[in-house]
Design a binder for these strands. Structure first.
Length: 900
DNA sequence: GAGAACACGTA
DNA sequence: CGTACGTGTTCTCC
């Protein structure tokens, strides 16, 4: 669930443990067996460099240094002769890779260091200490748990989890959450537990659990030693017996913060790397893909430093919230929250409010720690948050809203969501990080400004740092809301935001919170059944081919199908010839070999099995599946659904539909109801094109495809057979996607010439459609964007590209965007109206899902007919098209039964 | 190990 | 050489 709110980037020293990371990389990639052509192994240097590139990209440190161990004995060896005595010899293949890492660091102009007698950890501890004293933030990257002791308010630890780039971020809270110990307590714990990797002995029958329990109970090892007689039982005896050893361990687990390093933190500032040298080195190492990644991710030098935010933040203590909120000036406040959210719920830890500047022009903000509120505070905060007349702005509000709800709070008066506004301004972008938007629209850095420029003002109390960072975000959101509205206003996007997208946030949050009930036992049974079918298909395939192979590997499949069996070649793809379902179906008809059919069945069943597995994993404790809707992903204005994606649950095949039977009505409700728009995109096409023949086809009362086919082939509708209808149906739908003659021919399995002729015949009857489609592309090329019925834009700069492929792609997008996008507009409006009507009539029934043109509801007892009427009327009336909107409804115990 | 490529489900 | 998505698996990287 947890999706952490991003924290602002600020100047910081990045400290890496070279050997620790190199080893991790080596072992993670050992099976990959990476070597250059002359046999030099590169697993460690490759993995280390790959990780380094990512960390530099993601963390954007201002200073960096990589610390290495030395081969000489350290002070720990002197104190304890068996220190690390159990270490295995360095693997042969690892040899020489550390010096290659040095070469990479040289070329990147990144400093690295080591010191005789000290381990990298001690150097890191020392430098972290020195940087802290200078008010810098520190980020440590290592795989060594000993570094946990260094974590504090200013020092964050990224510890590799499994491999090398899968890292956990530890701030003090995270350390406590994970280990139940503070960072300061960690070395005490490590001493008690012992450490096999350092060869520190442990106390017999005392493991991590007991060690941690003692440290928690007594607070520290010192205290435990002082009161060691209080420890009862056998373990107490063992402890007393080994106390000397533990105390000795303790001297070794402490990292030295006073290593005599002759280096000033300021010397570690990042510089520009040597492109030539990188090219040469990567040539010898034969890093091709990595070179591209390097240049792509951090190839462009930093933009010139921008100003930060000048904001005065008050960390509100107990009983200060009410009075502070009472003094908030008129005007829109910016909000920023600290917490996590996902799967229809969340948690809120803190909240920053930035208010309009008053007389002296100084920006004011407050940070409210949600964990320490008095009753009065909470009442005041609740009143302010829910006061419709207090306008507020927030970035990506749906998650915070869920977090507020989980806390028993609510939010009203939201007049701008800066992520939504940015989405409407730049619908093609797929993410909208606040710092990027701030740079783009406000020409500022997302950080606090100080009088001395550069470095952020840091408070003495590190707690205030969280507050300050959040306050900066709140202030940025406030300013950004104004800037984005000013941008959208002349482009006609304000109404769409205020009247559709913004109110929809709450509706989507309600859907996510409700979730849909799942029948876990049923799904489990289904999974087993699909699994058995997969197994059988695998066995059959192996038998037919006469050898074992991986059916899930397109690469091996190509080898089997086209080389070993010599079957006809299929469509070319990058890596050879496709083995997709179309191709396999083709092969099945072309040859006598039963393999393609077996493979198709295997694909089917595998897909179904993994779908069910994915669903089972997402069933929450309440027995329901809570998807997350993304409102700011799809370039056309549609929603998307993730974790899990409930917008692609199978429906086409009977086998697939069985999955829908696992989505059931929840406890206390009567049944599920689904309502979907029939042919909404075609109706929109009729509306937009104003083609009278198409409009007439919708009004004829006949089946639409049948009616259009009748017109094209000049037959009475009753005489249109299935084949003719299918042809025109493919045409009807294809048009909205920019279907080519070639594509149509492929789809209908007819020659291209025939497809072209069919299209001609179609357009003879529906000329308005052709005119419209041509006009829409021309308009989009002229304006640079398309527009939906509600004025939602999609920008398509490629319409004027010299590259034919790109241009034609953009043309198809231009054809489709107004149609798909208008359908998205309509169902969004429908959702708002339905939800409003449900509340107004105080019905207990609730909306659960949206699947582009379908809504799914859970019907409360006795409300079926009222709900049906409400839903149909609201959906039909959502928008006034030239043709009526048709809605069909189904009811049943499961999603499948409620289908139609 | 991460990222790309492939394959496939929905509207 | 039909649009829009999200997810799972395998393979490449060198």
């Amino acid at each position: 669930m947890p999706k952490k709110e991003p924290t602002p980037t600020r100047p910081c020293l990045l400290l890496l443990d070279g050997h620790s990371l190199a080893y991790r990389a080596f072992y993670a990639l050992k099976d990959a067996n990476l070597t250059t052509t002359d046999g030099q192994h590169t697993e460690a240097v490759y993995g280390f460099t790959s990780m380094l590139i990512n960390v530099l990209r993601d963390e954007q440190p201002s200073h960096v240094v990589v610390c290495f161990d030395r081969s000489e004995p350290t002070f720990r060896h002197e104190a304890y002769e068996h220190y690390k005595a159990n270490r295995q010899e360095t693997p042969e293949d690892f040899r020489g890779q550390v010096s290659l890492i040095f070469e990479v660091l040289d070329a990147l102009r990144l400093p690295y260091l080591s010191l005789p007698g000290y381990e990298a950890d001690d150097l890191i501890a020392t430098l972290a200490h020195r940087a802290s004293e200078r008010d810098m933030n520190v980020l440590i990257v290592t795989g060594d748990r000993d570094a946990l002791q260094l974590v504090d308010e200013r020092v964050t630890l990224l510890m590799t989890r499994r491999g090398i780039s899968d890292m956990t971020r530890f701030d003090p809270d995270a350390v406590v959450e994970k280990y139940g110990l503070t960072p300061v307590q960690y070395p005490d714990f490590a001493a008690l537990r012992g450490d096999p990797s350092d060869n520190l002995p442990s106390i017999p029958s005392v493991g991590e659990k007991t060690a941690a329990k003692w440290v928690r109970e007594f607070g520290s090892l010192d205290e435990l030693v002082r009161r060691v007689d209080e420890v009862k039982g056998k373990v107490g005896e063992k402890l007393r017996e080994h106390l000397g050893q533990v105390i000795h361990n303790r001297q070794l687990t402490e990292l030295r913060r006073d290593a005599p390093l002759d280096v000033d933190v300021e010397q570690l500032k990042m510089g520009n790397w040597d492109r030539d040298e990188i090219h040469k080195l990567f040539d010898t190492l034969q890093f091709r893909v990595l070179r591209d990644r390097l240049y792509q991710s951090i190839g462009t030098p930093e933009p010139e430093a921008e100003e930060g935010f000048d904001v005065e933040v008050a960390a509100l203590g107990p009983d200060e919230v009410a009075s502070w909120l009472a003094g908030v000036p008129e005007g829109r406040a910016g909000l920023a929250v600290k917490g996590t959210h996902g799967s229809g719920t969340g948690r809120l830890d803190g909240l920053a409010v930035a208010v309009p500047a008053d007389g002296d022009g100084r920006q004011r903000a407050a940070y409210i720690d949600l964990t320490g509120l008095t009753e009065g505070d909470e009442a005041a905060l609740r009143a302010w948050l829910t006061d419709e007349s207090k306008p507020k702005a927030l970035h990506d509000a749906k998650g915070p809203l869920l977090a507020l709800w989980a806390q028993g709070l609510d939010l009203r008066g939201l007049t701008c969501d800066t992520a939504l506004a940015a989405y409407l301004a730049m619908p093609g972008q797929r993410s909208f990080p606040l710092d990027d938007l701030v740079l783009r629209y406000l020409h500022r850095e997302l950080r606090a400004e100080t009088d001395n420029g550069g470095q952020a003002a840091l408070f003495d109390d590190p707690e205030d740092n969280v507050g300050e960072e959040l306050a900066v975000r709140a202030q940025a959101v406030r300013d950004l809301a104004d800037a984005l509205e000013a941008h959208l206003e002349p482009r006609g996007g304000i109404r769409l935001m205020r009247e559709v997208e913004l109110p929809l946030v709450r509706v989507l949050a309600e859907l996510e919170r409700a979730g849909i009930a799942a029948d876990r036992d049923y799904f489990t049974g289904l999974e087993a059944e699909f699994g058995a079918a997969v197994k059988q298909a695998v066995e059959e395939a192996h038998r037919v081919v006469g050898e074992q192979f991986n059916l899930g590997s397109p690469k091996q499949l190509q080898e089997i199908l086209f080389v070993k069996l010599g079957l006809p070649k299929t469509k070319k793809i990058k890596t050879g010839y496709t083995t997709d379902a179309d191709a396999l179906a083709q092969l099945a008809t072309q040859t006598d070999n039963e393999l393609p059919t077996i493979l198709l069945r295997h694909r089917d069943q595998t897909k179904l099995r993994t779908t069910v597995e994915g669903l089972i994993k997402e069933i929450a404790d309440d027995g329901r599946i809570h998807t997350t809707y993304n409102q700011i992903i799809a370039a056309t204005g549609r929603l998307s659904s993730e974790k899990p994606n409930l917008q692609n649950i199978p429906i086409r095949t009977a086998e697939g539909r069985r999955i829908r039977q696992g989505f059931v009505v929840g406890e206390g409700y009567e049944c599920l109801l689904t309502a979907d728009y029939s042919q909404i995109e075609l109706r929109i096409m009729a509306h937009l094109s104003q083609d009278e023949a198409l409009i007439a086809a919708f009004e004829s009362g006949h089946d639409f495809h049948q009616a259009t086919a009748a017109r094209v082939f000049d037959l009475p509708p009753e005489q249109v057979d299935g084949a003719l209808r299918a042809r025109i149906k493919a045409m009807n739908y294809g048009l909205a996607y920019g279907l080519s003659d070639f594509g149509l021919s492929g789809q209908l399995n007819i020659p291209v010439a025939e497809a072209r002729a069919l299209k001609e015949e179609y357009f003879e009857e529906f000329g308005g459609v052709r005119d419209y489609l041509g006009a829409i592309v021309a308009q989009a090329r002229h304006d640079g964007y398309t527009e939906t019925i509600l004025g939602r834009r999609r920008y398509l700069p490629d319409l004027t590209s010299d590259n034919r492929q790109r241009r034609e792609m953009a043309e198809r997008m231009a054809l489709n965007a107004p149609i798909q996008g208008s359908a998205a507009d309509i169902i969004k409006v429908a959702m708002l109206h339905v939800q409003r009507a449900l509340h107004q009539r105080e019905l207990r029934s609730r909306m659960l899902l949206q699947v582009h043109d379908e809504l799914v509801f859970e019907v409360a007892p006795g409300e079926l007919e009222a709900l049906r009427e409400l839903v149909v009327s609201q959906m039909c009336a959502a928008y006034d098209l030239r043709v009526p909107l048709d809605v069909s409804v189904g009811v049943g115990r499961t999603w499948q039964d409620a289908g139609h």
